[in-house]
Amino acid sequence: MDLNLLWFILIGVLLTGYAILDGFDLGVGILHPGARNDHDRRILMNSIGPLWDGNEVWLVTFGGALFAAFPHAYATAFSGYYLPFMLLLVALIFRAVSMEFRSKRESPTWRRFFDVSFCGSSALATWLFGVAVGNSMIGIPVGADREYVGGFFNLLGPFPVLVGLFAVSMFAMHGAIYLSLKTDGALQKRVHRWMWRTFFVFVAFFVGVTVYAVAAVPSATQNFRQFPWAWAVVVLNVLAVANIPRAIHHGRPLYAFVTSCCSIAAFVFLFMVALYPNLIVSSLNPEWSLDIYNAASSPKTLGIMAIIALIGMPFVLTYTAIIYWVFRGKVELGKFSY
């Protein structure tokens, strides 16, 4: 395995970590308006209070790693997706401050404003991630000079929009399962209903995206001929998705949550398989696509970065484990809560 492939895998690992971890807290944001009263809304917000910031660092690290390992892909994608990215940044800013500010005042107007902003920004950010994934699969107009030549609306084709909605439904379900671990009493019963509803919406979009991809996005299935073993992941993924309602039905939310994590990991994995070896597919000419070789940094830098990752990642996993352990169990509002 060469360093370029290693970094392709590491980028995938970071993306998986981000999707699983920030996935549930974005999901909680999407579900937030479903809570009936102020107390329940605070419970929802505080269920992710100590965790969301660390989860978002996976995205920042993903961005930094992409910059360092594949600067051309970073530059083309971020300047090409300019306005969607600005919207994403705005959404992430609003999300952060909504949580921080919301419960700092009693005023209902104040709280309602930040409730709306919290839910809206969570949904928008999730949808935009999905749109980016969808566009990566179908390819974007990139010229021979590696520059994006399309406009804003080129990025809003039917497939990316559909993948965006799929992402929203998936994170909402993931968030609902997470919440059933963190709540109790009447709120948990409500959350239980959300789990079922979001699961069925998610399955509907899952089927929709799959049918669309198989029928109309050739690049989505091309690589499976080359890597037949990837079909195993497809099968495992379907099993994982099917296992979610089973686990919910048996009243084992932790099992459902782990399964949901596995399913998200499988989706990211399949996405990366479909993309390989490209990072950005040019819809104008396949020769102009940016792949893990022509978009990469020098082997020297990739090697040094691999050492940095090797030193850093054990620490990162240790902190993450410590924090999730410290804040395990049901949410209780205290004087240090949001």
Partner: peptide, 21 residues
């Protein structure tokens, strides 16, 4: 990217996770 990107990625791995956690 080859140089600046590595410093930025190192910042994320060594500093941001530590702080936020």
């Amino acid at each position: 990217g080859d140089i600046f990107g590595s410093a930025l990625a190192a910042e994320a791995i060594f500093a941001f996770f530590l702080e936020s956690g």
